[in-house]
Amino acid sequence: MDPFVVLVLCLSCLLLLSIWRQSSGRGKLPPGPTPLPVIGNILQIDIKDVSKSLTNLSKIYGPVFTLYFGLERMVVLHGYEVVKEALIDLGEEFSGRGHFPLAERANRGFGIVFSNGKRWKEIRRFSLMTLRNFGMGKRSIEDRVQEEARCLVEELRKTKASPCDPTFILGCAPCNVICSIIFQKRFDYKDQQFLNLMEKLNENIRIVSTPWIQICNNFPTIIDYFPGTHNKLLKNLAFMESDILEKVKEHQESMDINNPRDFIDCFLIKMEKEKQNQQSEFTIENLVITAADLLGAGTETTSTTLRYALLLLLKHPEVTAKVQEEIERVIGRNRSPCMQDRGHMPYTDAVVHEVQRYIDLIPTSLPHAVTCDVKFRNYLIPKGTTILTSLTSVLHDNKEFPNPEMFDPRHFLDEGGNFKKSNYFMPFSAGKRICVGEGLARMELFLFLTFILQNFNLKSLIDPKDLDTTPVVNGFASVPPFYQLCFIPV
């Protein structure tokens, strides 16, 4: 058959498939802009700032609406009420993970971030239990974070109060905490193996944040037939998995079943207990991918939040002064901060919360999916439909947070200066898919920041009023603009 005829037939089939998918069930789905064949609503979305586009569309179609990214149908949730109703009140029905062709290629359905069903539930339950087990290797997770915080302070001392970009050092600290939990080992910041790991993690975040990856996920045929950065992403992930597998083999040879040292040991012990169960989800494949998931999810998000926190503290020296006064009063100079201190430091706690609220790190979270046909607000959402959640619409709700575009710790303080919780605080998402490392991340943010401010004054290279804190939105995360500062020993 003539190649031209084959091409026309293929394009015609794709067009018909697109029209059929977009028209099927439209009477039951939430409203939304009319999609174009094949490309859907992509032309109506700013790929570099999806969150802003969703906010604009919500003003037209309401808090629940339908979009098509290519052939992929998505239902968008915008605003606290619908997000709570879906992710919390109907948590089980909305607990699936959205379709990610690239991740599915890399992870093969294993791990904790992109798995679904029984596998996801069992691996998540085990990971939560293990991360909360403060007795691994007779050292609590808090001990590990405190140790890394001391190392971080010593690295900052080496800058000798000269101007520096904190990106690298602030990236090393949370990565080392995860390494300590998974591998029972922290690395020197100049260790070549550690630097290679950091390089792969950072490069992957840069790649994932590009519009090209959005295109690959919406048109998965590209993955096999086109060159691009997605190939580098898959190569980096394969490198990390190979490295983790080597460490798993080392653990198998040296493990003491009665004295687990780290996450890998705990997983291997669980595998041993379930070795007679042919349906067990505790396999080497799941261990390797879960460890890679924890490394990827637990490094860049925390380091970016820390980097943004220091920029905001530079911009608002009056806030920094209040935090340091609270540190001096509650902790002093002669001991290290600990998590028990947080309950006695409402202002510092409010500042950490406000940093996370203000920066809105992951504006749309990772997409969910419905696990069955769901009736939601008089609409029928078919099983498997991807759910896109606007966390921006919750964290920047102007009824809950007056002047949401302003950095103001009073958003989390009552009139008496006591810490005030808010149900709208969802930087880790909400419901059954809430970030498994939430507790660890909150511990790291509090301890790293208090250790830094206990030991250093922060000095800006320019007038604080002239510092730009506008986030650089890159399609996946909101990151701070480049800046330098000086760490002046107190």
Results as ranks from 00 to 15, higher is better:
101 P>M: 09
479 V>D: 10
405 E>F: 15
191 D>P: 03
362 I>L: 15
28 K>V: 13
142 E>W: 03
404 P>M: 04
205 I>F: 10
244 I>Q: 02
337 P>D: 01
278 Q>I: 13
45 I>G: 03
136 M>N: 14
110 F>L: 12
411 H>Q: 03
58 S>Q: 07
152 L>W: 02
259 N>R: 11
7 L>V: 10
11 L>I: 12
360 D>E: 03
372 C>L: 06
202 N>I: 07
282 F>S: 02
175 C>D: 02
229 T>G: 10
428 F>K: 00
404 P>F: 07
420 K>N: 07
281 E>G: 11
120 W>V: 03
90 L>R: 14
385 T>F: 02
349 D>E: 12
129 M>T: 11
329 R>C: 13
329 R>Q: 12
276 Q>F: 10
250 E>V: 08
29 L>S: 07
257 I>A: 15
275 K>Y: 08
440 L>V: 14
239 F>P: 04
205 I>K: 13
2 D>Y: 13
216 C>Y: 15
167 T>L: 07
132 R>G: 12
322 K>A: 08
385 T>P: 00
413 L>W: 04
242 S>Q: 15
147 E>D: 11
280 S>C: 08
9 L>C: 11
265 D>A: 03
12 S>F: 14
358 Y>E: 02
176 N>L: 01
65 F>S: 03
427 P>C: 11
446 F>G: 03
372 C>H: 10
394 V>T: 05
156 L>N: 01
211 P>H: 09
250 E>A: 13
66 T>K: 02
349 D>R: 09
93 E>M: 10
245 L>D: 06
269 I>M: 11
398 N>L: 10
352 V>Q: 01
22 Q>T: 12
33 P>V: 00
153 V>C: 10
5 V>K: 06
465 K>N: 13
94 F>M: 06
452 I>A: 03
306 L>I: 10
360 D>N: 14
144 R>V: 12
146 Q>I: 15
411 H>F: 02
238 A>L: 12
472 V>D: 10
201 L>R: 04
409 P>Y: 03
200 K>D: 06
18 S>W: 15
115 S>F: 02
382 P>L: 04
485 L>M: 14
422 S>P: 02
333 R>S: 13
481 P>I: 08
155 E>D: 06
